[in-house]
Design a protein around this nucleic acid. Structure first.
Lengths: 210, 210
DNA sequence: GCGGGACGTTAACAAAAGATAATAAAATAG
DNA sequence: CTATTTTATTATCTTTTGTTAACGTCCCGC
């Protein structure tokens, strides 16, 4: 397993500063634990049934989470550059992951291990910061999940699609549409119909109104 | 505002031990910050538009979270005895809550404030424990949200209802059905139909099979 | 006890979504 | 470059869900 380059580490450090700011000494301790991983398209970061022991930071590429139900893959989520990726629940509970995490583009990521986390939580030079780091990351992920649950409760599939559209997320241009359909909780055919409705608004109404 | 009784505090302490174990000294410091709140049925714990500054622990009663969309209330979640309640996202980000949190039974809760949390995070006798407490609670809530999102992605409404049924959750006996329908992401009418289908399985099939 | 509102079920109809299949375009591998 | 696979759209049909309204029951406040 490779070490990340100094430039890659700097990108990661800047990203992490939204959660916690390390001193130079702490950063060096932290960096010693990091690894660089290259994942080819269609390779797995995590497979269902195995315990997830890694949190990754994507330097380049794209990732999808999916479940398998009745032999069918159902895509749950995506992560792109400058995002953290993990089967968090498996990582936190140390129980087998229910989901697969797969690269859908050739991907480079910085990997931080569970065992490293536990080691640093025992290291008095950095343990306070790691506790806070864990807390703030968990809080951030929690807020994302909250939005997602709320969207399922109070929005129709069409409204969820329009929200995604208006958010300007690169997901819409980077990710195959049938994966996005799963992510919105609908079938690919249904998403195609919604796209038609949204792109040609009022076609039926104009006639009635004129 | 009242102080909780010794017995109520003991119940809370036992509950919190699944997250973090306080020394007696730390527990006393923590208890000094706690308040007892009595919320009558139909009163609010949090109102939408206001920042949530409290995390509550329900000693007795029942709570529902709901959003208002187009003048309609849409119920998102419930909490019963021995559970923690908060508009976590608002509490964590200090932005206005999008949801209302309302008592649907007369409720007693122990309240822990944001300002108390910040105070204790500065107190060297207890700050490490509070960091960990915050982290573990966030992780726990995150795992619940993960299950909920996954259920929306990979299960049909009927499957979600059956899961709830099989979980043996007291929600089904304590909470009005039209609230449960919202929680499952469907209308009350649709839930009523699902209940009929589930309670009379195979009515259509038996004929074809015999 | 009485009246009004909340709750759950059912029916009838409309709208939306799922399933399946056919087709065409785009991406990929060889 | 060509052959194959993947992807997106569209059509058809079925199933499910939403909408609205009616009805009966239960509960609560007065």
């Amino acid at each position: 397993m490779q070490k990340p380059s100094q430039l890659q580490l700097l990108v990661y450090r800047r990203f992490l500063e939204q959660f916690v700011v390390f001193t130079d000494e702490q950063w060096e301790i932290f960096c010693n634990e990091l690894q660089l991983k290259k994942i080819k398209k269609k390779e797995f970061l995590i497979e269902a049934g195995k315990v997830c022991n890694e949190v990754a930071f994507i330097l380049r590429g794209a990732i999808r989470y999916y479940h398998v139900k009745d032999g069918e893959e159902i895509t749950n989520y995506f992560s792109l550059e400058n995002e953290m990726v993990s089967a968090y629940k498996s990582f936190l509970t140390q129980k087998p992951s229910a989901a697969y995490i797969e690269a859908i583009e050739n991907t480079q990521a910085i990997i931080f291990n569970k065992s490293s986390l536990e080691k640093l939580l025992e290291d008095e030079r950095i343990n306070m910061k790691m506790e806070r780091f864990g807390r703030v990351v968990a809080e951030t992920v929690l807020c994302c999940y909250d939005d997602r649950v709320t969207a399922f409760i109070i929005q129709t599939p069409e409204e969820r699609y329009v929200s995604l559209l208006e958010s300007g997320s690169p997901i819409l241009t980077r990710i195959p549409q049938h994966y996005i359909a799963n992510y919105l909780g609908i079938t690919p055919v249904s998403l195609s119909r919604i796209r038609r409705r949204v792109s040609k608004p009022n076609t039926g109404l104009r006639f009635a109104a004129s």
